[in-house]
Amino acid sequence: MKKLLSLMAICAIIFTANCSRIEQNNDPIIGIWSQAKTEVTSTTAKTTIRKEWIFNDVYLGRYHEITGNEITLQTDFAWSKEGDTYTIEYRGLENTPHQTFKIVTSDENILLKQIDGDDIAIRE
């Protein structure tokens, strides 16, 4: 009986020693960011193209392109942060270069802005 109790005590110590606390990521990029534009396809028809980035707290995310009501492109991405600069690496899109940008706050919106100055998306 003493051997069983000793074994259980050792197991309990090992299991509690291996538990670690998961860090909470409260980065301001976490959430949904989008860009929408309307293209004229003919004299009577217009199409809305929406791009959407969903950033999560484990440095991953999902990118969608939606034309009208149909998802035309969907892929996962990894994101990283160095200082105040963010980088997206798209997975599954080999010919797509990494995007590098910063979060910029204006009077009306919070924007993702590429390093060269072009706006990428606004926070929803």
Rank of each mutant, 00 (worst) to 15 (best):
T47D: 01
L60T: 15
S42Q: 05
N69L: 12
A36H: 09
K46Q: 02
L60E: 14
S42A: 05
K51A: 10
I32F: 07
H64V: 08
V58H: 06
A36W: 08
F55T: 00
S34D: 13
I54R: 10
V40K: 10
E65L: 11
G61E: 00
A45M: 13
T47I: 14
L60H: 10
S34W: 10
G68N: 12
Y59F: 13
T48D: 01
T41S: 01
G31H: 08
F55L: 02
F55V: 02
I49M: 02
E39C: 05
E70G: 06
I71N: 09
R62Y: 07
N69T: 15
W53L: 15
D57S: 14
S34F: 13
N56K: 03
L60K: 13
Y59D: 05
R62C: 05
K37G: 08
E70V: 14
S42H: 06
K37S: 13
N56E: 03
T44A: 05
R50Q: 08
E70L: 12
T47M: 15
W53D: 08
T41Y: 01
T67I: 12
G31Y: 09
G31V: 09
I66G: 02
N69R: 13
E52P: 01
T38W: 00
N69H: 11
V58C: 03
K51C: 09
L60G: 03
W33F: 11
T67K: 15
H64S: 11
I54Q: 06
Q35F: 15
I32M: 10
E70T: 15
I66N: 04
E52W: 04
K51Y: 14
K37P: 01
I49F: 02
T43Y: 14
K46P: 00
E65F: 06
Y59S: 05
H64W: 13
R62N: 09
T44Y: 12
K51H: 12
W33K: 10
I54Y: 06
R62P: 00
V40D: 03
N56I: 07
E70P: 05
L60Y: 10
V40R: 07
A36P: 03
V58F: 07
I54N: 05
S34P: 04
Y59M: 07
D57G: 07
T44F: 12
K46V: 01
N56A: 01
W33N: 05
R50K: 15
E39G: 02
Y63F: 15
E65C: 08
T48N: 02
E39Q: 10
R50H: 05
W53M: 10
F55W: 08
I66V: 15
T38F: 01
T67E: 15
E52H: 02
G31N: 04
E52N: 03
K37C: 08
I32T: 15
A45T: 14
G68S: 11
T43K: 14
T38V: 06
T47N: 06
T47Y: 05
S42I: 09
H64R: 15
E70R: 14
T67V: 12
K46A: 00
L60A: 09
A45N: 14
A45S: 15
W33T: 09
T38G: 00
W53I: 07
E65H: 06
G68W: 10
T48H: 00
K51W: 11
T38K: 01
G61M: 01
W53T: 03
N69W: 08
N56Q: 02
I32W: 06
R50V: 10
E65T: 14
A45F: 11
G31P: 02
V40N: 04
H64D: 14
E70H: 10
